[in-house]
Design a protein around this nucleic acid. Structure first.
Lengths: 334, 334
DNA sequence: GAGCGTGATGTAATCGGTTTCATTTACGAT
DNA sequence: ATCGTAAATGAAACCGATTACATCACGCTC
């Protein structure tokens, strides 16, 4: 009768040593003589032994996993950040756990900051309640952030990035520049709106309420903004718009084109994020590139540092953005 | 001196019972008298006790996690399936682990089918080596599949789905219908190509090599296919194309438009997948809709069933697709 | 009143590793 | 020859739960 799965004592018995020695041979080989090390190696090969991570984790009082909290897994924007996170966590020997904060019930939220579930948290959702997360396990925030939560943040300077976009439009000669805001209450929406206003003010351009449209980052909300814009009289409506997400920009352009207008001839459009697809639609979209993979990587690295208790600084990491000029922006028609 | 984290003995001591009783009160309350149950409840509240999952998992010889193997996390196509997976796994009390099979080294591949890492596998990458996965833990495949691997598959009928797309073009009156293939060797590419050929044959339409373009599902490869297509003489090149992915269709349309042609006036285009964005570009893309969220959900459910050892059938689940007709297809120009 | 089934609980083994502490051995220094 | 020290190893405690088995009290049957 063969036992289902060999464990460390099976290996020890076969190698003629104690389990302690096998353990040392595996996790700290320098403590073990060359001869025994060889014997253990042979016994492991012979038995097909594989370490049980759960047992090791129990003894080490850790879980070996990092949990990423995502507002909406289906959103491609996040998957690219997660890709960066995964590329760092894997080699470091951590598992990447993922939870969709929208799907999960509020009762489950409390479980997230639970040391028995993961060793650390990467938060990608700025709308979580601080109380549920407060001081239980190490946390790093990426892209978005929870106001009031004390944790290092890895993000871009949304305010000045928005400024870049608007400056670009102003440089082209646009005067009536509009803005489609992200979801109400979202930290990113607020920052980008502020950057938009900053830029208009610094250029002495008019800042009017009728040029600001409410959106929620989604394609559909961009389409809706375009519908509003189309209804405004041509003489007063914006000749250029900065939208707080590429998805909205796509929706906006699609709707505008459906009504027979041409971008950028009839209206210039700048997006935000530089998601892959928008370089290939027509017209290719001018946008602000966020280094999504890098954000994920840096967030993961900083979290790992905290777990190893180096880098105890709470400082934020601000990554650079880039204005990518494509064909959706041009000088206004005279 | 306060202990960092209360454990089950702390609770037992405070409640004046044994740890066994506390354990029973938590996991099988009917075994415990109402009075003790109440005492335990009080002690738990007083200590702030939270169960240590790792310890429980060790005892139960499980990990509490399901691992999804994704070829490329950054691809939005997969994130939507994962979203479906997560929505089932969460409520069922399982953690969702994610690994990017491209990022991870080949040496790590062997760890995936490791019982100490997860209780089950959801495979979204058909290019994995069978040998690494063979018969260690329960597996379900979703969308793609590994030839030769014995595991239930949750997918669509790619062959007949491709047929739908081509039939639609034939119905519109197209005769020279082209196809942009997915990555060489990919199981989906093969099936969709076969479906394309089936449909042409059944309609008695010409099947020529010059109408088949190599792609790899990416935007860029769609663009490249368009470049080739543009070079072909107008009298013989396809008047309509079926592309094996929406991303390629986007790339194709973008390039064609950049050369001053119009879709669908100059060429009709059908994609595959129905990713969200393509409904909003112009022209909105005609495509085959895959129920991505449902695929993820069903895959997760079937895996859970296997873990509970119900549903021992190895049968595949075939989910229905839908032809979504938008504005990128029309009758050929006369 | 003896025998027995049932319900509630405790004792201790167990899951599979890691790690502290003690022991043994070898070797160089005095 | 003696002592000290370092290297190699084993015994056993430990991480924090679960659970097989034992025990005990109670009430019922004949």
């Amino acid at each position: 009768m063969k036992k289902y799965r060999p464990n460390i004592s099976d290996v020890a018995r076969l190698a003629g040593v104690s389990t302690a020695t096998v353990s040392r041979a595996l996790s700290n080989p320098s403590l073990v003589s060359e001869a025994t090390r060889e014997a253990v190696r042979g016994a492991i090969a012979a038995t097909g032994y594989r370490l049980n991570e759960t047992a090791r984790n129990l003894r080490h009082r850790r879980t070996g996993g990092i949990l990423a909290l995502v507002p909406n897994l289906a959103n491609p924007f996040f998957s690219q950040i997660l890709s960066g996170v995964a590329s760092v966590l894997g080699p470091a020997g951590y598992n990447l756990l993922i939870a969709d904060t929208r799907t999960a019930g509020a009762d489950r939220l409390l479980d997230y900051a639970e040391p028995s579930r993961s060793d650390g948290l990467i938060i990608l959702d700025g709308s979580l309640p601080v109380s549920a997360l407060t001081g239980r396990i190490p946390i790093v925030e990426a892209c978005e952030w929870v106001p009031g939560l004390v944790a290092p943040r890895v993000k871009i300077d949304n305010r000045s990035a928005a400024g870049l976009a608007v400056q670009h439009l102003a440089d082209l000669g646009h005067v009536r520049i509009g803005h489609v805001v992200g979801p109400a209450g979202n930290v990113l929406s607020v920052a980008r709106l502020a950057g938009y206003e900053d830029a208009l003010r610094s250029r002495g351009l008019p800042l009017v309420q009728s040029a600001i449209y409410q959106g929620d980052f989604s394609l559909e909300s961009g389409r809706a903004a375009a519908a509003l814009w189309l209804q405004q009289p041509q003489e007063t409506r914006p000749t250029a718009l900065f939208l707080a997400s590429d998805a909205m920009a796509c929706g906006f352009i699609g709707e505008v084109q459906r009504h027979g207008l041409t971008v950028p001839r009839d209206v210039s459009v700048v997006g935000f994020d530089d998601i892959e697809l928008i370089a290939h639609i027509s017209p290719p979209l001018t946008t602000i590139r966020q280094p999504r993979t890098a954000i994920g990587q840096v967030a993961a690295e900083r979290l790992l540092n905290r777990l190893r208790s180096i880098d105890d600084t709470d400082e934020d990491t601000i990554l650079p953005v880039e204005l990518i000029i494509r064909a959706s922006t041009a000088a206004p028609r005279r």
